[in-house]
Simulated scan of single mutants.
Amino acid sequence: MTFTLTSTDITDGGVLPDAQVQAKGNTSPHLKWSGAPEGTKSFAITCYDPDAPTGSGFWHWTVANIPADVTEIPTGGPVPSGAVEGRTDFGEPGFGGAAPPPGHGPHRYIFTVFAVDTARLDVTPDNSGAVFGFNLHFHTLAKASITATYENAG
């Protein structure tokens, strides 16, 4: 079985809808996953923009410790009880929508769900995307992504 990610809000290769743009809706998208590998004890979600002019990209959403029996997050959340949303590059936990600089061209927004081999990653709401990524590096069994784009023409 293949680990897959789908959404009723965003389409792989498509343009992000206004609802997922910070200045227009700032709402986390619906995400649904299936086909997690044997040994999955929790899930994690990230949204990352590798095109941000920072030298290190931009973290728009990090969530860990989603229970293994959860396979869907509704539009706008909430994340399940016990899950941890980390600090985004906007400076606080929770979803932060697309906000590329005006005239910078299209940015990719990569929404990824990770099947994790432990029930709890050692992360807190104060941790950055880099800390979430570091922990996920050592505990990921599989991952599935949807990449959408958005451009702020200015």
Rank of each mutant, 00 (worst) to 15 (best):
F134Y: 14
S42D: 00
W59S: 00
P67W: 08
V70H: 02
P53Y: 08
V84C: 10
F3E: 04
G96I: 00
G129I: 07
P80W: 09
G25S: 10
G25D: 07
G133Q: 15
A119F: 00
S56R: 13
D126Y: 07
I45M: 06
F58M: 04
T75A: 12
A44I: 08
A83Q: 02
D51M: 06
P17Q: 01
S81V: 14
T124C: 11
H139T: 11
T75K: 13
N65L: 12
T149E: 09
G57Y: 03
C47Q: 04
T147D: 03
D12M: 09
D89K: 11
V70M: 03
Q20C: 15
P29T: 03
A115W: 04
M1E: 01
A142D: 12
T88A: 15
D51W: 10
D89V: 13
G91D: 07
H104V: 04
N65E: 13
Q20D: 15
A64T: 08
S28E: 09
D12S: 15
P50L: 12
N152G: 03
K32Q: 15
T140I: 12
W33E: 03
P67F: 11
V84F: 09
F43H: 06
S81M: 09
N152A: 10
T2A: 13
P29G: 08
S28N: 01
V113K: 00
S28C: 01
G39D: 12
A23C: 00
A83C: 08
F114T: 03
D89P: 10
P80M: 11
A44R: 05
F90D: 08
K32H: 12
V79E: 10
P29H: 04
R87M: 13
H107D: 07
A98M: 11
A19N: 06
T40R: 05
V15R: 11
P101V: 00
L31E: 09
T4M: 02
P100R: 07
T62Q: 11
P100K: 08
T71Y: 04
G96A: 15
